[in-house]
Each structure stands twice: as C-alpha cells, then as structure tokens.
Design a protein around this nucleic acid. Structure first.
Lengths: 187, 187
DNA sequence: TCTTGTCTACCATTAGGTAGGTAGATTTCC
DNA sequence: GGAAATCTACCTACCTAATGGTAGACAAGA
C-alpha cells in the first residue's frame, strides 16, 4: 500500500518550504506525487485544508523533536544548540521554515492559517522560555534577562539565519550564527 | 503632474511586503494605483522587471539610511541599534522586509531577482562588518568574534524578529529582541 | 453493497502578457 | 511660426495558460 495522503503532505511541505504557499499549485503537487490534480481534493478539499494539515504535521514533528531534546540534553545552552540544529537541517536541504513561508504572506493568508502559525511560534516560545528558565535556575544559562524575552530573541535569530543562509546556500554561515547565539546565552 | 511610475513602485512595494511576491498580481496593483492593468506593462514590461526595480529602489533607500547612520551616530552599538530601528518601522506598519518576501520563494524566484536580493544582503553584511570592526577598534563593541560572523548574526536576528513580530503585531517584542541584540554586542 | 480512492472532463476566474489604438505633449524641419 | 512627425502614457479588447475547484464515472476491497 502507498499512503497517498502522507505522500501528499510530504511533497507539499517540500514545495511550500521551497517556493512559498502562493508559489505552489495543486498541479505542481499532483505532478510531484504522480496523481491527478482532482484526486488531491479528495484528501484535501481546499488549499487551506492542505495548508492547515501541513502546519499541523510540521508542528507535531517539531513537538516530538523538542520533547526529545529536553529528554536527552541536560543543560540549557546545549538544548538551545540542539534546537538550532533543527533549523540547520533546512539550510542543508535548501528548504526554509514552513511557518516562515506562510507568515510572509501576511494579510493575504487565510485567517485560519495565520492562527495556526501563530500557535506554532507560541508553542516554541513557551518551550524555549521554560528551557531558558530552567537553564538560569541550574546555572547553565546567563541570568539578568527575562526568559520570555530571550526566547523571542532565539527564535528570531534562527528564523532569520535560516532565511538568509538558505539564500546563500551556506550551512557554515548558519553554524557561525548559531555558535554566536549559544555563546551569548552561556552563563 | 503625478508620477505614475513612482506611485506604482510605492504601491507594489506595499503589496509585496504585505503579501509576498507571488501573492500579488498586476490586477491588484492596477486597482491600488487606479490605472488599467495593461498600463503597468508600459512602465514595467514584465513582473520580473517590476521586482528588480522594487529591489533597486528599496536597496537605494537603505543605502541612504546606512550612510546617514554612519554619519550621525558615533559609536558601534548605537549604530547597530539605529540599524535595528529601520526594521522596527516594518513591524509598526505591518510590512515585512521586501527581500525576505522574495527570498522565501527560493527556487521559484527568477534568477535575476535572486541575484539582486543576494546583493542586497551582501551590501548590508559589508556595511555591518565595517561598523562592527570600527566599533571593536574604538572599544564600543565587544571583541573576540570575527566582525563578519557578527554581521550575519545581526541581520539574522533582525530579519527573524521582523518576520515573527509582524505576525504577532508586536513592536514591543521587537524592541525587546533589539535590546538583547545590542546589549550582547556591547564591550 | 457501500466506501474509498482515483480517474476524466469540465468549470469560472485569474494570471501575466499582447495588439492596436488614441489623446496630448514634444520635437523636427521647412 | 506652423505643420508634420514622433513620443509618452494611457486605454479597450483580447490571448493563452494556469489557478483552485466540481461532477460524475468507475474499479477495488471490506
């Protein structure tokens, strides 16, 4: 059996992360998966449905990764570095962040998707805040700045680095930025 | 007299920064300017021509702002903060970075535009590197990290903060991230 | 038999772009 | 100076391809 729905999600994610939400079409996706355009509508009636499913799957994958980092890495800055390496994968594959691709569309983005990606960022912010707070408590992260403020700073740096270093196809430059970020968080 | 070309550039910039390059059409622009769609082609034969003109105008405006900052602000971190406030304007107006909007399209973006926005970032990188190097020399910026690496870090943080805080419509959060960034650069 | 997944064949709308024309300003040349 | 030619900026009308989406048929499997 081939799980067409999963295949659609995978290829659609690659397309959106590679060219933006408005920049890909059902026709592109149909060709990538080897199915007829109309068949996609059976799985995802509208493009917004597909977009929402994409964000949900992406968020779920990230949630699992975040839980794994918390379980496997003990110290604060180590966790932030592991978090940053998640973004590095995008640079290496030439793929941006799904939610950044959607966020760029701003006012043109269907309200539902805007809410979904805002929730995505809010989740990461909450996770980072907790990680940073714990790091400050155990002395692995520098104190003096509100963890909530630091969390926003961390996401901003990584999202921006992914955006720019993908353009330059430069994973090394991304690693440099990640190193500066992590270094600045050390106690 | 009304300078239609300038008006087209202005409205097109707002559209691209608000909804992405693939997310706006000649029809949208025609309506915004109050002209017929076909007339746009008189000024900008193709959408790529328009995009290139947009980037050129945007880059020129930034170049002037960068020169002004260098002339008017004496110290390294003050200059970086002034640079960051340029991005803050976008958050306040609900508009992203033009070049980020284009960069998101990645592989789907016409080669010419990809080159143009890469040059935009390269210019900023060069300016920042020089500013940071001077700051390190005069003791206003912390030493120990290659200015070229720091420059990438600065742009990444600001581009990412603009992307995310525009979504959250939160200039205050942007200011917080900018403060953390500038603080971390102090000697 | 009913559901699931796919198909072909459509639909209306929009995309970027073109053809050809027109009113008004500007330049050229006697 | 005045007429003719040219140029500028815009128009209406159209084109082809692509967009997201729908209707209905059909085959396979539970």
């Amino acid at each position: 059996m081939r799980d067409t729905r999963a295949e659609l999600l995978m290829q659609a994610e690659t397309l959106v992360r590679g060219r933006g939400y408005a920049g890909f079409s059902y026709a592109d996706l149909a060709e990538a998966v080897g199915i007829r355009k109309a068949s996609i509508h059976h799985h995802f009636p509208s493009k917004v449905d597909l977009g929402a499913a994409l964000v949900a799957a992406y968020a779920a994958r990230y949630a699992a990764a975040l839980a794994a980092i918390r379980a496997e890495v003990p110290d604060g800055t180590g966790r932030i570095e592991a978090y940053g390496r998640l973004y590095l994968g995008g640079v290496e594959q030439g793929l941006g962040c799904l939610c950044a691709a959607l966020a760029i569309e701003g006012e043109a983005l269907p309200e539902r998707l805007r809410r979904d990606i805002a929730a995505f960022f809010a989740d990461h912010l909450a996770w980072l805040e907790e990680i940073l707070r714990a790091g400050q408590a155990d002395g692995s992260v520098r104190v003096g700045t509100d963890p909530a403020v630091l969390a926003r700073f961390v996401i901003a740096t990584l999202e921006g680095a992914l955006l720019m270093e993908r353009l330059f196809a430069s994973p090394d430059a991304f690693r440099g930025t990640l190193a500066v970020l992590v270094d600045g968080l050390k106690a």
